[in-house]
Simulated scan of single mutants.
Amino acid sequence: MAVGIIFDCDGVLVDSEPLANRVFAQMLTDIGLPTSADSAMRDFMGRSTSAVAAIVEQRLGHALPPTFLDEYASRCEECFAHELRAVAGVEAALGRITPPTCVASSGSHEKIRFTLGHTGLLAHFEGRIFSATEVAHGKPSPDLFLHAAARMGFEPKHAIVVEDSPSGVRAGVAAGMAVLAYAGHVPCEELAAAGGRVFTDMADLPMLINGLLAEQLRPGIDTVREQRDK
């Protein structure tokens, strides 16, 4: 029975969401679509680059400038180099999690490796990183989580997703996986409404994972006991 943990990256492992959305909001404002960092987080957090670009172009009424996304990536990298930190408590939590883990993020491989490397977390996931660029549809579609599970050998019903955005939570639920939703920058009620089991402190994550795994494995254990006792 293959079990495992699938982590989102931005907002779960690295505290990049406020930084990236601040940069994105300013760039959208500069091209004529006034946007605040808060509204950018609300509307775009957790979605793939292609999905975000489609929403923005619909609002603009025309295509984004050809260099917009490349410039955004460059500005984010510069910002991250100076300000990015790991999510508080996540490195200690990773040290206490025993099932196999991987990362499945809406970002590109280059971005994921840069942010994890910059925050000292890359060694925890080396060789087990999956990007939305590998699948047809990004979050909230379940494609990315199902892809990661298949590559890792996890059974979806025994996989646990750790997310921080409503889109990501919905993707995990659609994949048939249990979802632990970290309320770092999104209200608890929004994550709960999307189907996540909400928590607010990374120190609690190992205990929550163990509790969920026990719930998932309990029916099989009970069946074995019943057969044994006959």
Score class of each variant (00 low, 15 high):
residue 72 Y to S: 07
residue 223 T to F: 12
residue 6 I to C: 06
residue 154 F to E: 05
residue 196 G to M: 06
residue 23 V to S: 10
residue 154 F to I: 03
residue 162 V to P: 03
residue 148 A to T: 00
residue 34 P to W: 02
residue 197 R to H: 09
residue 74 S to K: 15
residue 159 A to L: 03
residue 105 S to P: 07
residue 151 R to W: 05
residue 42 R to N: 03
residue 66 P to V: 13
residue 57 E to Q: 13
residue 55 I to H: 06
residue 123 A to W: 04
residue 35 T to I: 00
residue 32 G to R: 06
residue 228 R to V: 11
residue 23 V to F: 11
residue 98 T to C: 01
residue 165 S to N: 04
residue 104 A to L: 10
residue 148 A to W: 03
residue 164 D to K: 07
residue 220 G to L: 12
residue 123 A to T: 13
residue 163 E to L: 08
residue 190 E to P: 01
residue 40 A to G: 12
residue 37 A to N: 03
residue 79 C to D: 10
residue 200 T to E: 14
residue 179 V to R: 05
residue 69 L to Q: 14
residue 181 A to W: 10
residue 90 V to R: 10
residue 186 V to M: 04
residue 48 S to T: 10
residue 52 V to Y: 07
residue 22 R to G: 12
residue 224 V to Y: 03
residue 99 P to T: 07
residue 23 V to E: 09
residue 58 Q to V: 08
residue 70 D to K: 13
residue 101 T to G: 02
residue 136 A to N: 01
residue 33 L to N: 08
residue 32 G to M: 07
residue 51 A to I: 00
residue 91 E to M: 13
residue 128 R to P: 05
residue 9 C to L: 08
residue 142 P to S: 02
residue 77 E to W: 05
residue 193 A to V: 08
residue 15 D to E: 10
residue 190 E to H: 07
residue 4 G to W: 08
residue 178 A to L: 04
residue 193 A to T: 00
residue 92 A to G: 07
residue 20 A to T: 14
residue 85 R to F: 01
residue 123 A to S: 14
residue 94 L to P: 05
residue 75 R to C: 03
residue 168 G to Q: 03
residue 173 V to C: 07
residue 49 T to G: 13
residue 39 S to K: 05
residue 215 E to H: 05
residue 154 F to N: 03
residue 85 R to I: 13
residue 8 D to T: 05
residue 222 D to A: 14
residue 24 F to W: 02
residue 63 A to G: 09
residue 21 N to A: 02
residue 175 A to E: 01
residue 14 V to A: 10
residue 143 D to R: 00
residue 110 E to S: 15
residue 86 A to W: 08
residue 212 L to V: 15
residue 223 T to C: 10
residue 137 H to K: 09
residue 98 T to K: 13
residue 168 G to S: 00
residue 51 A to D: 15
residue 84 L to M: 08
residue 227 Q to M: 15
residue 71 E to L: 09
residue 27 M to K: 09
residue 128 R to K: 12
residue 18 P to T: 04
residue 81 A to T: 11
residue 40 A to F: 09
residue 72 Y to A: 04
residue 188 C to F: 00
residue 198 V to K: 05
residue 136 A to L: 11
residue 121 L to E: 11
residue 190 E to I: 00
residue 169 V to D: 09
residue 18 P to I: 06
residue 149 A to V: 04
residue 23 V to A: 06
residue 193 A to E: 10
residue 209 I to A: 00
residue 27 M to D: 03
residue 57 E to T: 09
residue 216 Q to L: 15
residue 55 I to Q: 12
residue 24 F to G: 00
residue 1 M to Q: 04
residue 110 E to K: 15
residue 90 V to F: 01
residue 3 V to D: 12
residue 9 C to V: 09
residue 194 A to K: 01
residue 31 I to D: 13
residue 135 V to G: 01
residue 6 I to G: 06
residue 8 D to N: 11
residue 8 D to K: 00
residue 162 V to I: 15
residue 19 L to N: 04
residue 150 A to T: 13
residue 105 S to M: 08
residue 130 F to P: 00
residue 60 L to Q: 11
residue 34 P to A: 05
residue 108 S to E: 10
residue 79 C to L: 15
residue 74 S to F: 09
residue 198 V to A: 05
residue 143 D to V: 01
residue 207 M to H: 14
residue 39 S to F: 09
residue 83 E to S: 14
residue 116 L to A: 05
